[in-house]
Nucleic acid binder design. Structure first.
Lengths: 341, 341
DNA sequence: CGTATTTACGAAATCGATTTCGTAAAAAGT
DNA sequence: ACTTTTTACGAAATCGATTTCGTAAATACG
């Protein structure tokens, strides 16, 4: 049976106020009274109602989680799964629970994120990168509610974002290709409207320029960060008369798709060099083990939690952090080819 | 600015009651009044407060998500990620949001799941399989709150569970080995206390008996469903004088670990036959592509949502469903070996 | 021992909704 | 035109907490 504060009070022979004070650690309660009430609360398994509490208090100890963009996209993307896992753990250590907003009905009713946050009175929220900044995200970004974007640049006064240094990601990949002697380099990115994708593409162009390498516009492809799109992009690349031998894909999943396309086309995978991005768990086990630019998912998740908590508790303003990527060399940029040359 | 029902009422020149009735689609409100109030609500972006609503109503349209067992374990296990993804989508279509309980602080304070569910007044909850049935899970199971266990057998009056037919999983794997001529078959399961693991082990023993195959107790190993544990188990297997050539691992991740151990030991992977379980996305891309017993993750997620909704809305009692596994043949049970023999 | 402080507690307002029940006005019936 | 029914709306109680402010009793002070 679910107990209320009133019943506990009656049982203990005190007023609601006294019980409430005990719950909230006020110091004007006698020691013996406190002990007795605590005993009763324990005995009946009493828990204060979240609804009643959050109605009167400001704080809910709940943060909202929003997967922006296409319905449910990214919920099962390995990169975001890992980031969220660490975020959840870090927030959990501070007693926060996570409310994942569903957005199916949501889109139908044309509701907005801000309204939902207000409805639940969340203390803050985290928005997982969509492919573009929707008006609804912008509205939330500009609101009073503390928000952290993951792979999504938020600019509001009470917002911030965490993401890897995207230009550097491309730099690391291209540099590796360059040192390996690769000159014909293709780029498979995410949606054109995606911020991180365009940062990576921009970084790609910059570093190519630095190395004096020409950028073939035919070799710039756009996917959606998932496997299938990498497969499709690579297939198109392979159909071209002059086909690149080096491919940098902006996600490991797309890189895996590219590898699959190469294999399926009947060509030898050893004749290609492919670099992915993210360093998802699977990338070490696939064939060939994927050379990739690692994103520090644990750090991203942790930083998101730290910054968000700081905003909630200390009213910190606009904080954003860029985390360093790292090149992980495995075997998808075969040396054989170059040895033959 | 966050509006309250009182302010909307004042703005519209009506009472709170009328506004509330409009929100809840009562039919005793005049057409023009309704329209006017709706307009004002729209204009000011008014959303009723969840706290106030759930305080007085019974329904919250929120379901709790609990990862039982070790802190945060399973949150990022590919199998559960896929199941949850579909569960979230299906519940979302009905307007439910998902509250993921953190359990870090939780364990410290020795709080229990039931208390948390009551605190948030969730309509129901889903419990993701832990390695054992903790007292706290049992308590929730036996409560009035509708609960669905995923890979966790719940027995309460208002509970149910969804899981694959575990005995059949083992049967499919062993049958495949048998037809391939394998006779020395090892089993790598999850924790001994894990229900699904023991069901699979039991099924394994049964089917081995059916085929007249002896079960070597030295070849029964226990991991934790993650990669590292499969690696460790296989390593132990390889160190034995008489080492099995066929290995059925109760998860793809452990199968991947086993493959890694075999490779690392210097033996040829072609000399071994390994079958995994789950059919996670990665299993098709690894080297060698993994033969596995597929669990229908989409169906599991969907069924969990359907049954839970049914329990919430129609007070259905104890419903459990077993879903059929399916053998997916890829290349980790090489034919070469047998051709040589 | 009388006065001044503390200490320990409760009455009541409040948070933002829902819902019951009563009633004035409008519509329908005869 | 008068009664009956329907329609449209509001007053007030309620949900389960928190918090302010007031006060009686206990303790300290001189």
């Amino acid at each position: 049976m679910k107990m209320t504060i009133k019943e506990i009070a009656k049982l203990a022979g005190v007023s609601q106020a006294t019980v409430s004070k005990i719950i909230n650690n006020y110091d004007d309660v006698g020691a013996k009274t406190k002990e007795r009430v605590l005993g009763i609360m324990e005995e009946y398994g009493y828990r204060p109602s979240y609804a009643a509490q959050s109605l009167v208090k400001k704080v809910t100890k709940v943060v909202g989680v929003i997967y922006a963009g296409k319905i449910n996209a990214n919920f099962n993307h390995p990169f975001f799964v890992d980031v969220m896992s660490m975020f959840k753990k870090t927030m959990g250590a501070e007693g926060y629970d996570l409310l994942f907003f569903s957005n199916e009905k949501f889109h139908k009713n044309n509701e907005n994120y801000l309204a939902r946050c207000q409805h639940y009175n969340v203390d803050g929220c985290i928005i997982i990168g969509g492919d573009e900044v929707e008006p609804s995200v912008y509205e939330l970004d500009q609101s009073e509610i503390p928000c952290i974007g993951i792979d999504l640049p938020l600019s509001g006064k009470h917002s911030g974002y965490i993401m890897t240094d995207n230009a550097k990601i491309s730099a690391l990949a291209v540099e590796h290709f360059y040192l390996l002697g690769e000159r014909n380099i293709a780029f498979i990115g995410g949606k054109k409207t995606s911020n991180i994708s365009s940062e990576r593409l921009h970084g790609f162009r910059e570093v190519m320029k630095t190395y004096g390498l020409p950028v073939n516009e035919e070799w710039i492809k756009h996917g959606d960060f998932f496997e299938e799109s990498g497969f499709g992009a690579m297939k198109e690349l392979l159909e071209q008369e002059n086909c690149p031998e080096a491919v940098f894909a902006a996600s490991d999943l797309m890189a895996m798709g590219a590898v699959r396309a190469i294999k399926q086309s009947g060509r030898k995978i050893e004749d290609f060099a492919v670099i992915g991005c993210d360093d998802i768990t699977a990338s070490r086990y696939i064939d060939p083990p994927l050379t990739t630019v690692k994103q520090d998912k644990d750090k991203i998740g942790k930083m998101a939690a730290y910054v968000l908590k700081d905003m909630i508790n200390n009213q910190i303003e606009q904080t954003s952090v860029r985390v360093e990527p790292e090149l992980i060399i495995r075997e998808s940029c075969s040396e054989k080819k170059r040895q033959i040359r």
